[in-house]
Amino acid sequence: MVPILEVKNLRTQYKTESGLVKAVDGVSYYINEQEIVGVVGESGCGKSVTQLSVMRLINSPGEIVGGEILFEGQNLLQFKANGPEMRRIRGAKISMVFQEPMTSLNPVLTIGQQLIEILEVHLGMSRKNARQRVIEMLDLVGIPGASSRIDDYPHNFSGGMRQRVMIAMALLCNPKLIIADEPTTALDVTTQAQLFELMKSMVERFKSSLVIVTHNLGIVARYAHRIYIMYAGRIVEEGSCKEIFRNPRHPYTIGLLKSVPRLDDQEGKRLVPIEGMPPDLIQMPSTCAFLPRCSYSIEQCRVEPWPELRKVEGTKHYVRCYLKTEAWEQCRSHSATT
């Protein structure tokens, strides 16, 4: 199978007063057709910058300094960020749902004006047909009274309803790929649940692929087919959803799983925090960025550069770590000490 998106060795950096921030530092991944892929990591690890790079939405002082972004057989990095090619792709073939819908909706235009224009520009539809199509789409994403609400302004909608409008907008041109970057983080859990169930049924219906960017492990466990775990601007682990949760391997992934309280935890269970803090992306060592927080490191981790993602023998699981299977097992079975 040919993936619909393949990112190779992507590097994106920000020139700041305090130094060069290597926000994305050699990230490679792919998305298959009709696949739901989770990208997980704590804040600042480069999840959003990766996705914005794919959309070619990186602005100064940021710059994509290397890599390839292959979409439908073309390297998107050969196009101008604001050139006609990217404008044809962005919002039509690849669309994005952001955490804060107000940043991507124009407050002085009605929902209808904004969504109809997308159809006119990208698909050359007549205004009348476009309006009909927008109403259908708003109805489909569960906005009651869509035929009148189409003429409302963004501020007339609640946070949850606005995010539904964003989902409708993302789906309008039947994109190949939808990127949802923490789309519900600011919303309540019952609304989050509504929206994720909606997104899942929509991408199945429209046969799109979906990238879910989140720090919430529960959400990826429920929706993703495959998962990438990011740390300090790199991917540290990749595998099928089941594989990652059943046999997490990178000590960071294992640490994340042990540090979150779960609804189904036994009473009195103690969390195992990851000690220390994520690194500063300005002064990155050449060794593994997780080394200062890892209790399982071996001599090799301290002297050799951070390894590439490598396949764990006999699996379809990739991990960026020198440790051996026994060490991972030990790490997994380690429980809290008071």
């Binding site: 609640s158 309803m161 609304t191 919430n216 529960g218 466990a221 959803c241 949760f245």
Partner: peptide, 23 residues
């Protein structure tokens, strides 16, 4: 409770959700 997913795909596979209407 049903709105909060557990970080375990085997549990989530069979867990039913009660989706509340509206806001």
């Amino acid at each position: 409770l049903s709105a909060i997913p557990v970080p375990d795909p085997d549990i989530e596979e069979t867990r039913k959700r009660i989706i509340m209407k509206g806001d």
